[in-house]
Simulated scan of single mutants.
Amino acid sequence: MVSRLRHIPGIGVNVVGNRADAAADSSMLRLENLDTDLRPPRVAVERTRRAVDEDEANSYLPFEGHSELRAAVAEHVGRLSGRSYDPDRECVSVAGGLNGILNALLAITEPNDEVVLADPIYAGLVNRVRLAGAVPVHVPAVPSGQGWRTDPAELAAAVGPRTAAVLLMGPAMPTGAVFDAGHLDALAGPVNEHGAWILYDAAMERIRFDGRPPVHPAGHPALTDRVITVGSASKELRMIGWRVGWVVAPAPVLADIALVGLTNVVCQVGIAQQAVAAALAAPDADSDVAAATAVWRERCELILAELADYPVIRPDGGWSLLVDTASMGLTPADASERLFRRGRVAATPMDGWGPSGSGYLRLVFANEPAERLRDLRSRFDAAF
């Protein structure tokens, strides 16, 4: 194995997902993968169908993304952040959000630079930091009855001379934790002192269960020129298979990120870009996301009620929540195995999802309707 892969484990989701697929058991609850059964916006589906017959959609060009998509993205990010972006110089399309994260990391980090991020956090983010040759520095999120919280002072203290970026996500995967203005206030000084970037994963920023608008780092006056926003159509718009994302950032660094993109994936799915542009620009775009979020919140609350006697941590948003299996005297792998065999529930252990991940099991509530979740307590009881 080459050195860059030595500290990159898998993410576990594929192992559990493949096993569940092989079981071919329709009674099994599929809580292991970030899929959703909620349909994408109708305008996006209709626009995709039309694109199949359009010659310009069957093209490599333009490499940076179709102009309509970049215009819609720049307006979307500008509206949420309060900062104006030039779609031609400060926005590029990418093949999904994580492609954008990796492109940005390759553009802003030198080998052995540090990237500050939460713990626990999505293994795919940690692994991309390592793949870029950088070093992840984790700041713990602390669980409580009210959810997960990261101390702003601890987050700021993690930024130092070797820090290339602070990777923020809110709601975060897999915890559903959010950050607030206090975190940005704390970061402003050290980020500017050390010339670091805020790498903001905006994939779920509007999927908040408190009804509040996103807290966008580029809206902070002391951070606005140090923020790289990476977004995706996969979560909020439920357009997973379209594989379209974007990166929005100040022009000088965006040029470097675009160069990485040309050297990496080159271009995005042609027949998908106009559909994403239409979904972002639709008059009912916000209400569409809000309606989907209400469904996901209902399912989350149902799981929390079903598992009230189990150590489950409430998320602030997103598509998943965590079970503290360590407090149950089990590794998450053991808990996953028991649920699979005895409860017919597929759930992913969080090994590799940050230093504390080895104490938690993830439940995804985005892909199973409420009527199938109502016996979750009996399934857990059968397993444990």
Rank of each mutant, 00 (worst) to 15 (best):
residue 375 D to S: 04
residue 217 P to V: 01
residue 234 S to V: 12
residue 253 V to I: 15
residue 100 G to I: 11
residue 24 A to R: 14
residue 107 A to P: 10
residue 157 A to H: 13
residue 381 D to V: 08
residue 264 N to E: 14
residue 322 L to W: 07
residue 133 G to R: 02
residue 288 D to L: 14
residue 172 A to G: 02
residue 93 S to P: 03
residue 14 N to Y: 07
residue 100 G to T: 05
residue 270 G to Q: 14
residue 285 A to H: 15
residue 374 R to C: 10
residue 349 P to S: 05
residue 233 A to D: 03
residue 316 D to T: 04
residue 31 L to H: 01
residue 363 L to S: 07
residue 242 W to C: 04
residue 338 R to K: 13
residue 179 F to W: 13
residue 32 E to F: 12
residue 44 A to F: 10
residue 168 L to F: 10
residue 318 G to R: 10
residue 184 L to C: 00
residue 82 G to T: 05
residue 302 L to A: 15
residue 319 W to D: 10
residue 70 R to M: 03
residue 226 R to A: 12
residue 95 A to P: 05
residue 372 R to T: 07
residue 319 W to E: 08
residue 60 Y to A: 09
residue 35 D to E: 07
residue 93 S to C: 08
residue 267 C to M: 14
residue 325 T to N: 13
residue 256 D to S: 15
residue 348 T to A: 02
residue 13 V to A: 10
residue 332 P to A: 12
residue 79 R to N: 01
residue 324 D to V: 11
residue 5 L to W: 11
residue 193 E to S: 13
residue 384 F to Y: 11
residue 207 I to K: 12
residue 293 T to S: 14
residue 12 G to P: 15
residue 221 P to E: 15
residue 329 G to S: 13
residue 324 D to L: 06
residue 373 L to R: 03
residue 356 S to Y: 01
residue 284 D to Y: 10
residue 98 L to P: 10
residue 306 E to D: 04
residue 124 G to L: 09
residue 281 A to T: 06
residue 331 T to A: 11
residue 96 G to K: 10
residue 101 I to Q: 06
residue 368 E to Y: 07
residue 358 S to M: 07
residue 310 Y to C: 13
residue 132 A to M: 15
residue 191 V to W: 14
residue 110 E to Y: 01
residue 92 V to Y: 01
residue 269 V to C: 02
residue 97 G to F: 05
residue 364 V to I: 00
residue 318 G to K: 07
residue 115 V to C: 07
residue 213 P to Y: 03
residue 117 L to D: 09
residue 373 L to H: 00
residue 220 H to N: 12
residue 317 G to E: 06
residue 28 M to C: 12
residue 310 Y to F: 15
residue 230 V to K: 02
residue 298 E to C: 08
residue 31 L to S: 07
residue 32 E to Q: 15
residue 15 V to H: 14
residue 349 P to T: 04
residue 78 G to F: 06
residue 92 V to N: 02
residue 281 A to V: 00
residue 167 L to T: 11
residue 113 D to R: 14
residue 49 R to F: 15
residue 361 L to A: 09
residue 247 V to K: 10
residue 341 R to N: 06
residue 345 V to R: 10
residue 42 R to L: 15
residue 281 A to C: 07
residue 31 L to A: 15
residue 241 G to F: 00
residue 336 S to F: 12
residue 184 L to S: 00
residue 159 V to H: 14
residue 280 L to S: 10
